[in-house]
Amino acid sequence: MRGIAHDAVGVLSAIGGFVIGGLAAIGRMSKFAARALGHAVLPPYYPARLLEQILVIGYFSLPVVGLTALFIGSALVQQIYIGGSRFNAASTVPAVTVIGIVRELGPVLGGLMVAGRVSSAMAAELGTMRVTEQIDALATLRTDPYRYLIAPRLVAAVLVMPILVLVANIVGVLGGFLLATGRLGFNSANYLNTTMEYLKVEDVVSSMVKAAVFGFFIALMGCYHGFRSTGGAAGVGKATTNAVVSAFIMILLSNLVITVLVFGT
């Protein structure tokens, strides 16, 4: 019995340690985000840095986001068609597809793909700058690192993600449309009409809100882990992994929260 009690205490203290560690990390991240955002609104601004980040995050993510949406949209239509046919409800395909894509798959998959590309790249770049003392050098060269490095990344990601997700939504629906009309015998005019009929403004708005929130977490996790990395190349590698994993978790978690808040009542 004592052994069990002892184990239980050990497990509890391990869980307690984990929770406290997690809370401390959340505290540090919030402080980091607050500092970066505070600096994003006050001058001096770095418009050239912002444009550069918009290009890096937005433009160069278009192919990967577009392809993902195209493939998932088509696969989704195929599965909904198979499922729907069992209940003689194949006519629901366009409506279910557009709602599924715009409300969930477009933003979530778009967010995950961009996180894979961008959070890791940011963490690697800032981490290398940290371990080679370039971030320290900024401070001695009359430049605030938060303003110069972090703020443009956060702002660019929040601005650009809604556009990327909009593209993902359109391409995803289009992919479904192509499969439905080309393989499953749907009438193209009917398909498009039903799609537009079931698409509500609140679906699009929630999709864009999610995208902006995901963009924030993508940049925040990349910057936070890169900025804090220590210990040479291995440290930068660890920061990169942590950035991607934590960005994924924050995207999935905040998606759930927004979905429940917007659609759950």
């Binding site: 080679t132 370039q134 320290d136 050098a137 060269l141």
Partner: peptide, 30 residues
């Protein structure tokens, strides 16, 4: 702190040049 740091010039041990910028952009950075 920023005003304090602006009084100093620092040559870092490893150079700490910004590798994404050209040499003249580095030198004229401050």
């Amino acid at each position: 702190l920023a005003a304090h740091q602006a009084r100093f010039g620092m040559l870092f041990q490893g150079g700490a040049l910004f590798d994404s910028l050209s040499v003249w952009r580095n030198v004229s950075f401050a």
